[in-house]
Each structure stands twice: as structure tokens, then as C-alpha cells.
Design a protein around this nucleic acid. Structure first.
Lengths: 175, 175
DNA sequence: GTCGCTCGGTTTCGTCAAGCAACCTATTGC
DNA sequence: GCAATAGGTTGCTTGACGAAACCGAGCGAC
């Protein structure tokens, strides 16, 4: 008597059945392991499969399936930058860029509670005026409410405490 | 020839080894499935094990281990509200309350991209002036930058489209 | 007093997805 | 011909998730 459940198709997936809350809806899409880090990586200018794989240390099959999912959900867009052999780059859509405030909030939370005595490893600054950005994505110098394209990442005071790895210094967002 | 990895203690867990980014740090703590929804539930006034279990539809063992983890991480605090038999309630610590901006950002993202034609199922309003709250956690009426305690949840226009379940109408945050 | 119920879990067991490694295809460089 | 690179896919192992059963202290009804 094994069949305890009838429809496996809708069980045990990444969804949160019965939740009619937009947080749950969001997490169904970007709440899987690695998903938000992939979005962050693309924001930081990592656009290619192997770049992300190296930067994240994620298994290739998992990266592949996450990218597929993010493209299906219209968070990333896959574009060929050459043919034969086909090679691709991934870009954030508007929907993907709109995740920026959530990422900023999570980053500040991590900065506050998990970064070492040296301070945060990375800072986000306003491209225009160079001011630092608050947990709400607001420029602390000029007060503007910013969006993904208005910001740029720079190494923070805690940067030296890590590194050795492969990450570029300051990823610009081109799209 | 099984031992492909040496130290399982630090492999395959909920961490993201090699990432020196505060987003990764945050996700190590609250990125597990259900964790953020539990925090949201406590924010909404669900404080007891069985309340959360019913509201979330989560397996009891998983809820148990998540609560344990969140208490260990100092995001929740467990307090006995009676002895023999010991019964507990969970409250958010300051660290837990500080997750509010991230939750608000995720909620707005879900509202924008996943809610039905009726509109979002829930709204967050400023307790003092009743104004709606933006994706940055700023009151759209009075312009104040808010924190968890300043806000209150009310049913939104898309509320009717769901329900039937057990959730209370508007959870106040007491702590 | 014992039957059943509630609360807050823990235990058991089965399934599924994450992780690793090997393989594949097509092209370029030497 | 041989190796390297890019972007995956396939196969296998292991650990996390989910459902249901169990537990144990108290309480109310009979």
C-alpha cells in the first residue's frame, strides 16, 4: 500500500499550496536555492554560464535548470552572442531588475548581522552622485529613490578579508 | 571508493560556500524553504506552533526544525506562556523584525507580477496615518520611512478571491 | 479512572531534488 | 591529431522535505 498521495505532479514542488500571499508567490519563483544569487550575479555583470558557475560554485546541472526556470519566468532573457557553436548570455528583464529592492534589503540585513568586524564586503553606491545606498534602496547622499540601473557595486571595507577568487571588481549593469 | 568528499559537515547544507556576499550570508539563514514565510506568519500574529502549522500547511517536523533554526539564529525568541505542560509562543527579535523591508520588497514584487486581476490579496498600511506602503517600506501618504512596528496588515482587493481558510483578518504586532 | 482531546513536538519512512563527476557536441588553436 | 573552451546533459549518491504515526503531559466528560 504505497500510494499515500495521488497526484505527485503537484506535490513536493517549489510551491506553497494554499498560501494566498504575495510573499509566497514570489518565493515560488525565486525562493529556490541559488535563484536569488543567480539574479545577483547577473546584476553584477556575470552573464555567461561558465562565469556564473565559477563565481557561484554551483553544480552545472543545477545552474542549468535554474537558468531555464528564470528564463521561463521571464526574469532572465537568453540571447545568443554567437552561432555555431551557439553561445549565450543572460540578461535581466524588467521583472528581474525589479527584484533589486529585495536583494538590497537582504544584503543590508546580512551586512548588519553577519559581516565581520571589518565591515561589509561590498557596497552599493549611486552611480550619479556616489552616495551610499540605504537598506531601502535610497541614496543617502542625495535622497533619491533608486532602481537597479542607478546603482553600482564597489568593494567594501571587508573586501580584503576574502577574495582570492575570481570575481570582477565592479560589475556594471549594461542592459 | 565512496569518499568523494571529506567533510560532510560543511557540504550540502543550506550554505553557499565560497560566497563572500551578504546576500548569500542572509540566504544561508533565511533562504531555506519556509523560513521567510514563518517570519511573515509571526509578523502577522501567528505565534504558536499549531497556528503556524495550520496557516502554512507545512509538515510538522519541518516546522519544528525551522523554528529551532530561527531561534538559534536569534531571529525568533521562544517564550513559555504556561508550564506543565510547557507551551510556547514565538516572537520576533529585533533581528527578525529587521527582515521586514526584505519581506515588503518581496511582497510588492509578487503583487506586481503574480497577483490576479483583482489586485493584491493583502495590503500593508501605516498604523498611524493609514497610508499604503511602497515597495521600499515608505508610507505613500505621509512619506515616513517605516519599520515593522509601524505597519499593519489589512485585506486587499484580491482578498475575496481566496480565503475559506483560517487566517485572522488583521494581525497586529504586539511585541 | 479512563476515554478522548489538545498542544507541541519527535520518530519513521518514502520520495525528490541537490551535488558531483563523467560525458557530449562543435569550434578554435597549435 | 590533440587539447581546450562553452554550454550543457546523463547517471548516480545523498540528504532534505513531506506525510503519518507516535508520545506525553494535562484537562474535561462520563
Amino acid at each position: 500500500m504505497q500510494p499515500r498521495v495521488k497526484n505527485f505532479t503537484e506535490m513536493l514542488r517549489s510551491d506553497y499550496p494554499g498560501q494566498f500571499c504575495s510573499i509566497a508567490k514570489s518565493l515560488e519563483v525565486v525562493g529556490e536555492r541559488w535563484s536569488l544569487l543567480i539574479v545577483r550575479d547577473v546584476l553584477n555583470g556575470h552573464r555567461r554560464f561558465s562565469e556564473m558557475q565559477q563565481s557561484l560554485g554551483i553544480a552545472r546541472n543545477v545552474l542549468s535548470s535554474r537558468l531555464q526556470r528564470l528564463v521561463d519566468e521571464d526574469i532572465l532573457e537568453r540571447r545568443a552572442y554567437q552561432e555555431s557553436p551557439a553561445r549565450y548570455e543572460y540578461f535581466l528583464t524588467e521583472k528581474g531588475l525589479d527584484l533589486w529592492p529585495a536583494l538590497i534589503a537582504l544584503m543590508h540585513w546580512g551586512d548588519r548581522y553577519s559581516s565581520g568586524p571589518e565591515g561589509p564586503p561590498r557596497l552599493i553606491v549611486h552611480k550619479e552622485c556616489g552616495g551610499e545606498i540605504s537598506d531601502r534602496g535610497i541614496c543617502e547622499r542625495c535622497g533619491e529613490v533608486l532602481h537597479a540601473r542607478d546603482a553600482r557595486q564597489v568593494p567594501g571595507p571587508g573586501w580584503e578579508a576574502a577574495v582570492s577568487a575570481t570575481l570582477p571588481v565592479a560589475g556594471e549593469l549594461d542592459r
